[in-house]
């Protein structure tokens, strides 16, 4: 399967230790920027109770969900111990300061929760 990279914006559009949302037909995608400028993307949905991770506090390479403070790894999408669960990781490419994502197939297809 060839990956379909979609440009969603520039790295400077996202604040350091912050996040922006990419609206899709289905589940939104949260795009994060760490203090070192690394960009990560996850489905904007905490594995716990579907809280919008894009609204959380970013620290190191993880984000704390705003609803119940689960910590989710930005690198893997995995919840950090003692919690367990996984937010869907979205592949990211940076080229010339532009951010490219590949969308999960389901969210494009159906527009319902993927």
């Amino acid at each position: 399967m060839t990956q379909n990279w979609i440009e969603v914006g520039r790295t400077e559009d996202i604040p350091y230790l912050g996040s922006r949302v990419v609206k899709t037909g289905g589940t939104d995608i949260a795009v994060f920027k760490t203090s070192t400028g690394d960009i990560f993307a996850l489905e904007d949905k905490c594995p716990h109770k579907q809280g919008p991770l894009s609204q959380g506090i970013v620290h190191g390479k993880s984000v704390s969900c705003p609803l119940h403070n689960w910590n989710i790894s930005l690198e893997s999408g995995e919840a950090l111990a003692p919690d367990s669960g996984c937010a869907h990781l979205i592949p990211v490419q940076i080229k010339g300061g532009k951010i490219y994502l590949t969308l999960p197939a389901q969210s494009k297809a159906t527009g319902t929760n993927g």
Partner: peptide
């Protein structure tokens, strides 16, 4: 208050 992008 604005999405970064709207796709799909």
């Amino acid at each position: 208050f604005k999405p970064l992008a709207e796709v799909g």
